[in-house]
Design a protein around this nucleic acid. Structure first.
Lengths: 126, 126
DNA sequence: ATACGTCCTGTACCATGGTACGGAATCAAG
DNA sequence: CTTGATTCCGTACCATGGTACAGGACGTAT
């Protein structure tokens, strides 16, 4: 049984973040032991899931929904959300790659330019 | 000579956004014609640059710096910023790709599962 | 038993990037 | 010359994802 501090440590977040997640309904209000919150492994798993899902670009709202679905075993909805997010990830990656192209062009022209004008504005013009 | 509304339209943003950028120093306060701001092509270029740079992941603060550098022709610093951002873009793309892996796994397992438990939590566990 | 660290609740504040609104002035068309 | 759209300025508000107190109550080690 962990205190909030230990849970935070296990999840790589701050204590305030745990409480924040609780307020948002992402983590439940756990059993108390004399006023002090006690957490178990499921809480650690849940917290780690939150971090992972965040990395996948889900908002906290969406993560809450995923966690609720997990409880309710709603496959269809979970898949739908995953597909939507995968599509957005594709888009985001493509966007970033386009940005890379532009930016590399800027860097290259800037490097070549010697003492000539640095075409920062121009670099993004195509 | 464009009014603020036309400039906003040309840049694909709202009028309030233009004023917001002016407050942040990203766009200059332009010449007035009887109290009304008048903009020219350089402003349109500048605005478009801002949008592009944003897509490349620069913050408004950084974009301001880039624009200031462009004025001062500081190659070295501009290149430095570009390289830093390129490195971060690489990282971001890699992160998103990893997220895709995890999420695809979730979707696949969820699809296979039939009426069995949907391993949403499990999907992110590796 | 006294001090230090951790916990509690509640509220306030932060950065980022805008968005909205009130109330006055001004512009363009009919 | 009136009407409707646009502009002006200033300030307030929004969402997202936290972060930081203040002011107490605990628990543990010395």
């Amino acid at each position: 049984m962990l205190t909030i501090g230990k849970l935070a440590q296990a999840g790589g977040v701050g204590v305030e973040t745990i409480r924040f997640y609780q307020r948002r309904g992402l983590l439940g209000m756990p059993a108390r032991d004399g006023g002090i919150r006690r957490y178990g492994n499921p809480d650690v798993r849940r917290l780690r899931f939150i971090r992972k899902a965040q990395q996948a670009g889900f908002t906290l709202e969406e993560i809450k929904e995923l966690l609720d679905l997990d409880t309710g075993h709603d496959h269809r909805r979970a898949q739908e959300m995953a597909q939507t997010r995968l599509a957005k990830l594709d888009e985001q990656i493509a966007d970033l790659q386009r940005a890379q192209q532009s930016l590399r062009k800027l860097a290259a022209e800037c490097a070549q330019g010697g003492s000539r004008t640095c075409p920062i504005l121009a670099a993004f013009e195509v």
